[in-house]
């Protein structure tokens, strides 16, 4: 009658478990490259003040090619822009902007999208129909059209970008969560919770949501990359963060007229944003690969 005994695992702290999941990611080369890129930019953003050779908004020497020596020592590694600001320093400080508003907007979008998705998927019926219809209406706007209209109406500011991203992304998140919930709610442990009379909110939050976290983490990584692109595009279209604070998209927009003669001004911000988005996309791919193996 006795079952075979295996070694007893100790209770794991959640930090330890998080570290273990990262260790799992080691098995995906793609994921590790992504993680490295993301970490690189996070460190740059954190220590921008220490790392940047010049103040980001200081006018020093206009239109200098990469590698030129600065007048009072130091070097413009990536050159300067049309009004003489050091591009490297601006990229470093720009990373900070992107890595504050990108995740912030994503978190906001999730905190709206997840409850909507849970309600639509679990409660079903009319709730589902109404929520799904709202989601469909919002999703039927081409994304950028929606952003342009929202920002043009409410004005360009950091907060408004967060609001616009939340508004535009929450329906997509809702759909994903809804799909996951529809799958999970027919599981027997959910049925068991129902038969012991658990209230619906508890079933959604405790029984269902934790089991949807895998796909949601992958989606969050992808979405973060996309939000970063969006912030960049808005900056590029002149609807982003107001100048003069460095914003990668804005930097490209301001300098693209002269990009034919001085390509370095637009080129480096382009590489910066592309690499950061690539980092998140690769990380998401790695996470997906690892989670499928489990």
């Amino acid at each position: 009658m006795s079952e075979q005994t295996i070694e007893i695992p100790r209770r794991e702290s959640s930090i330890l478990r998080a570290i273990k999941s990262v260790a799992l990611l080691r098995e995906s080369a793609v994921g590790m490259v992504g993680l490295a890129i993301v970490l690189f930019w996070v460190l740059v953003a954190l220590f921008a003040d220490l790392l940047a050779p010049f103040p980001p908004n200081a006018t020093i020497m206009p239109l200098v090619m990469p590698g030129t020596e600065a007048p009072d020592g130091g070097m413009f590694l990536l050159g300067t822009d049309h009004i003489g600001r050091d591009i490297l320093s601006r990229i470093m400080h720009g990373a900070r902007q992107v890595l504050i508003y990108g995740p912030l907007a994503t978190v906001c979008a999730y905190s709206v999208g997840i409850p909507m998705g849970l309600a639509a998927g679990y409660v079903g019926g009319l709730t589902d129909e109404v929520l799904s219809f709202i989601a469909n209406v919002i999703l039927s706007f081409p994304v950028l059209v929606l952003y342009v209209i929202i920002i043009a109406t409410i004005g360009a500011s950091a907060v408004n970008i967060v609001i616009a991203v939340t508004f535009a992304s929450a329906p997509g998140i809702m759909r994903i969560v809804r799909g996951l919930v529809l799958d999970l709610r027919s599981r027997e442990y959910v049925f068991a919770a129902q038969t012991r009379g658990e209230p619906p909110w508890r079933i959604m939050a405790v029984e269902i949501l934790p089991n949807a976290r895998g796909p949601l983490i992958v989606d969050a990584c992808l979405r973060l990359g996309y939000v970063i692109i969006t912030i960049g595009v808005l900056g590029f279209l002149g609807l982003g963060l107001p100048p003069p604070d460095p914003d990668w998209g804005g930097m490209i927009n301001e300098t693209r007229q002269m990009a034919m003669a001085f390509p370095h001004m637009a080129l480096f911000p382009c590489l910066a944003i592309s690499s950061l988005v690539l980092g998140f996309n690769l990380l998401a791919d790695g996470l997906r690969e690892v989670s499928l193996r489990d």
Partner: peptide, 15 residues
Amino acid sequence: SIVTTSVPEFASAVL
């Protein structure tokens, strides 16, 4: 395909 989708349109336009 991951690499190309990571480059936003304005960036690839510049590049």
